[in-house]
Design a protein around this nucleic acid. Structure first.
Length: 484
RNA sequence: GGCCCCUUGGUCAAGCGGUUAAGACACCGGCCUUUCACGCCGGUAACAGGGGUUCGAGUCCCCUAGGGGUCACCA
């Protein structure tokens, strides 16, 4: 087999969404598995809809996920520019070839006329197909009209008989009747190629061996195959994975919450988690396993394992998986990611990074996203301004609440705060002396120190906060409790 | 509407003619525990429907239904 060459060819008209990311992942995995190459190509032939921002965003997203490409923007390569907008000469060449071969022709029909035809067809519930009206216009006449300033499109002379079969690596043979297609447009009136033409020219020129993409392209594939035939080119292999759907089974869109990889990044998801989740969404090794390292995915990946049915993405499972990766990650790494935000919120300043890392360590196994660490750990850095209401009723408003808090205060005053273990020992001893349960001291302390009823281990919390701060906060709590 | 793809619990998903139809998320119990989370143990829950083929069908074929895609001078 020739060296495997696959491509990811996004259109830079928006962010990299998870469907695109998964397609990129599958291609990447396939390339790495077979020691082949991944080509990144920007399909920006529609200048009105494409933007540089989108292109940069997509590149960023890919990089963040760890999906690198061997040829493409910023990587270079021997197959010319990897932006369609810079390949017009190439398209022009093959457009001319098809024209010369009489396999394509100029069409001067106005879009108004076409729209009217379409409407008329709909009225009598007939399928609309372009009539082939301009097929009779000679090449000479066409060129003269172009000289005079007319801007025709170019249509492909589509065979009307026979069937075209797509040998799909995932779905098997899929047959299409050629009579279904009309003479579709391969070049727009502004001279730029349409998708179906450009994709064929580029995949051929870039020596792509396997076209792995989402199912939405399956119906277009026969047209592309017809083009390959007309140009006399060898076909690549095709593999159409199913699509990723929103929870309501509709196509993913903004109204379904976060769907772009940038959003997931901003919301505190780890790239490893997203990769792991995406790999398992629509692909399976046939093995009962949830967590996969990237090397293991490369090792086990195969097209046969790709599912034919659409997959609905489930943010809950992604979050669960992210939580797992978070608890495994090093506190230093997470702190580094969080550092900027933490500074913005005044949680960390130069010189006290150690404390910040310690807090991250305590919290990372209790959250689903990185960002939650900051939200859930704010009290480590900022004094408590209010107390959880239910907690307050339970631990501050009881008759003996002030007394308990005062005992907690004594405990803090007497303790050397040498370690969480010692704090625990001291507290339990105090509880024994008072003939109460340790919890009767622990709960009020937790509320006093954090304002919350759920925190990491209380002795760790005390240890991080330190003696003076604990005394201060418990004093405040006493004042508060006595005022109730 | 034509054409194409798809159909195992709410979701992901194993299964590739013979199984008590895995596992995971979520949910519900229980344990652990100073709270929360983790972890551990247990539970509820599925082969869309109907015809065939076969000794035997979630697995093969057909029909119906449902979902998705496509039919652009978007990609």
């Amino acid at each position: 087999m020739d060296k495997v060459r696959v491509r990811f060819a996004p259109s830079p008209t928006g962010a990299l969404h998870i469907g695109g990311a998964r397609t990129a992942l599958f291609n990447w995995l396939f390339a790495r598995k077979h020691k082949g190459e991944l080509i990144l190509r920007l399909e920006d032939s529609d200048s009105r809809r494409s933007s540089l921002d989108s292109a940069m965003g997509i590149l960023d997203g890919l990089r963040w996920l760890g999906l690198d490409w061997d040829e493409g923007p910023e990587a270079g390569g021997d197959s010319g520019s990897y932006r369609q907008s810079e390949r017009i000469d190439i398209y022009r060449k093959y457009l001319d070839q098809l024209l010369d071969l009489d396999k394509a022709y100029y069409c001067f029909c106005s879009s108004e006329k076409l729209a009217a035809d379409k409407e008329a067809a709909q009225l009598i519930k007939a399928d609309y197909k372009y009539t082939g009206h301009c097929q009779t216009i000679s090449r000479n006449e066409a060129e003269q009209r172009i000289q005079k300033g007319e801007c025709p499109v170019i249509r492909f002379k589509c065979p009307t008989e026979g069937i075209t079969v797509v040998h799909d690596l995932i779905r098997g043979d899929v047959e299409f009747s050629n009579c279904l297609f009309d003479d579709f447009i391969i070049a727009k009136s502004d001279g730029w190629p349409t998708y179906n033409f450009a994709v064929v020219v580029d995949d051929h020129a870039m020596h792509i061996t396997h076209v792995i993409r989402a199912e939405e392209h399956l119906s277009n594939t026969p047209k592309q195959i017809l083009l390959y035939h007309a140009l006399g080119w060898q076909l690549p292999q095709f593999a159409h994975a199913s699509m990723i759907l929103a929870p309501d089974r509709s196509k993913l869109s903004k109204r379904h919450g976060a769907t772009s990889v940038q959003e997931f990044r901003d919301e505190g998801y780890l790239p490893e988690a997203l990769i792991n989740y995406l790999a398992l969404l629509g692909w399976s090794a046939g093995e009962d396993r949830d967590f996969w390292k990237i090397d293991e995915l490369i090792e086990r990946f195969s097209l046969e394992g790709i599912s034919r049915s659409p997959a609905i993405y489930d943010i809950e499972k992604l979050s669960w998986m992210n939580g797992h990766y978070l608890s495994q990650a090093s506190a230093e790494d997470l702190a580094a990611i969080l550092y900027k935000d933490a500074r913005k919120r005044g949680f960390v300043s130069v010189g006290c990074e150690k404390k910040f890392i310690r807090v991250v360590e305590l919290l990372k196994s209790r959250v689903k996203t990185i960002n939650e660490i900051l939200d859930q750990g704010s009290y480590f850095f900022v004094r408590v301004s209010s107390y959880d209401e239910k907690g307050s009723q339970k631990y501050f408003q009881k008759e003996d609440s002030p007394a308990m808090l005062k005992e907690a205060l004594n405990l803090c005053r007497e303790s050397s705060f040498s370690s969480p273990e010692n704090l625990e020992q001291e507290l339990r001893q105090k509880a024994d002396e008072l003939n109460i349960k340790a919890g009767q001291l622990i709960h009020p302390i937790r509320l006093a120190l954090s304002g919350r009823t759920a925190t990491p281990g209380i002795f760790e919390v005390m240890d991080v906060l330190g003696k003076n701060e604990c005394i201060h906060r418990i004093n405040s709590a006493i004042l508060y409790a006595e005022s109730l």
